[in-house]
Design a protein around this nucleic acid. Structure first.
Lengths: 339, 339
DNA sequence: CTGAAAGCGCTTACAG
DNA sequence: CTGAAAGCGCTTACAG
């Protein structure tokens, strides 16, 4: 194992200069910094977090994750990313669940008692002004995860829901579809509106008219998708493609289509959003927009750790807004429009 | 933060005696050991893994996870549990994916090059004699995760698939159902057979006849569930309940039922196995057997870490077979048999 | 801006 | 069976 001392010897500096370079401290002469960085690369050096933690550990960054909507698979992925990063960054993660406002206060009290420096808010809490204010009042940082409408002064890590919906709609149009139905999401969640706006923008861009009778409400649940699917597919002139603003609703649409004897994708193209496990469970598997949830969790922890370190130095860290890349995953539920 | 030295001072011994007590070394006088243990409890002391790792770290346990079936949500949960435990046990986790036998050899070579002491095998590799032999040949330990037929000499962490199927079938029978259909799983996966055997046992125990024409094959996939569901529900005398040997197939059965206008659970009870995310996505949500997958991952890492430590002491650790508790989750897809 | 010294909490290796 | 000493890889705090 190559240590900081190996790097130092090799670069002809002291271990401290290496340490300073690694930790991005300002007081290192540029030429030395470069030499050290080159040596680190050459020797393939990586910090030993355990060792680092013995020094910083006692006061190492503690980050809470406060969540209220226990969608287990989503949260698992967030946690997975968070844990991966925490062992790299050497911070500690604390999980706390809450429901209404009362239990939120209790949960927050617990986190504060545990000495957290910052709290990550997955949806839907990421959009709660109230929660953010409570955190501020408690003197801890907040980071909104996967919000669609980040608040200026609160750091956020997210994908661009508008661009995602735009890309998906363009893809459907490119397949030759002109008669496209859309299922909206829960209006209380910020991504819902942006996805709809993205859909409309792509339609207009292509010179296609949005038929408002084929834009139906939904609540992001499978159950609401069943209703929406029936509304769209039992009419005399069903669309040739349906873009549901999440996967659960798209899966429900496919169940309805199956029941009505409508073949997917030959007679009907169905697309979703999020790429949750259900998207690759159902048959045919769902074409959808992949959200890099694990990476979102990882990045959130990385950013928050940085901010905490800065804050401890006395700096007043500015909010960071990190946009992550989504990808359009082509699976078998979408095909060319029937002639 | 309370350290080993605080404990030592308080107990009137040296830090080494505390260290030895913590690590279960033999050479500590019983009375001292007890005194130390009491002090640890009184002071609420916990080891600082970071500090421990600076000493053991260079040679700290390294555990590989070799997987081939990339069911993402399942693997995520395993990983989540594994990571949680790894930060407690102070071991390092290495993930490696492989496909056929050739890529398995490559993956294994990588893991060995990285210096792993043991490898955890999630399904379906957990049942591969070949894989286990390759690991043995490479001189590393193996642990089979969620296998239904553990090999005597290879440690395993699993639930009892037979008992799970037994419990679920008893539950369905208790609801008054007598005409129960069953969908088998992929015969290549060991749990499939055990779940079927459990079903048959519960039927016989209740004095009910298993109608072989209502036991249909499946492959654990949604797609195979669609076929199986049609076979069972399109016949003139459909069963009043269907027990699918996993959730994906149960979800498919519900899609078929929906299409045929059969109401779940009023006219048809549907039950699954595993409690994967899809079980709580669909409507009505699925009554199923919950596998504690996160706990499985956690336990696997804990056991393997112990075994590695033992092996390093020179002991030849015996295989551990840990059975975890499943739970029957009652949701809305099951109800009393129609009159 | 740089480095020598001391120490984080624990364990290894040595001496009793 | 027990303990004093040295050291893991890194950072803090101090002196230049």
């Amino acid at each position: 194992m190559v240590t900081i001392h190996d790097v130092a010897r090799y670069a002809g500096v002291s271990s401290m200069t290496v340490s300073r370079t690694i930790n991005g401290t300002k007081y290192v002469r540029p030429d030395l910094r470069e030499k050290v960085q080159a040596t680190i690369k050459a020797l393939n050096y990586t910090v030993n977090q355990s060792a680092r933690n013995t020094r910083v550990g006692a006061t190492g960054p503690r980050i809470g994750i406060l969540y209220s909507n226990p969608s287990p698979s989503y949260l698992n992925e967030i946690m997975l990313g968070g844990l991966q990063q925490s062992s790299r960054s050497g911070c500690q993660l604390l999980l706390e669940e809450c429901g209404g406002l009362a239990s939120q206060k209790t949960a927050l009290k617990k986190l504060l008692a545990a000495g957290v420096d910052g709290v990550i808010l997955p949806p839907p809490l990421c959009d709660s002004r109230q929660t953010v204010n409570m955190l501020k009042a408690g003197g801890v940082m907040a980071l909104a995860l996967a919000t669609a409408r980040p608040m200026e002064e609160v750091s956020s890590v997210r994908i661009d829901d508008y661009q995602g919906a735009l890309a998906m709609t363009r893809y459907i149009i490119k397949l030759g579809h002109k008669d496209i139905g859309f299922i909206k999401g829960d209006p209380a969640h910020t991504p819902a509106d942006l996805r709809y706006v993205g859909f409309v923008a792509a339609m207009e861009e292509a010179g296609l008219k949005v038929d408002d009778s084929k834009v139906v409400p939904g609540m992001f649940t499978y159950r609401s998708g069943l209703l929406a699917g029936e509304a769209l597919l039992k009419r005399p002139d069903p669309p040739t493609a349906i873009f549901a603003s999440n996967d659960d609703m798209a899966a429900a649409v496919m169940a309805i289509a199956h029941g009505l004897g409508i073949k997917v994708p030959e007679q009907l193209t169905v697309c979703g959003f999020d790429d949750t496990p259900v998207a690759s469970t159902i048959w045919p598997p769902l074409t959808t927009i992949h959200q890099p949830i694990v990476a979102l969790g990882r990045t959130a922890v990385a950013i928050m750790t940085e901010q905490i370190k800065k804050a401890r130095t006395g700096e007043r860290p500015e909010a960071v807004h990190q946009l992550m890349k989504f990808t359009l995953v082509e699976r078998a539920s979408a095909a060319k429009a029937p002639a």
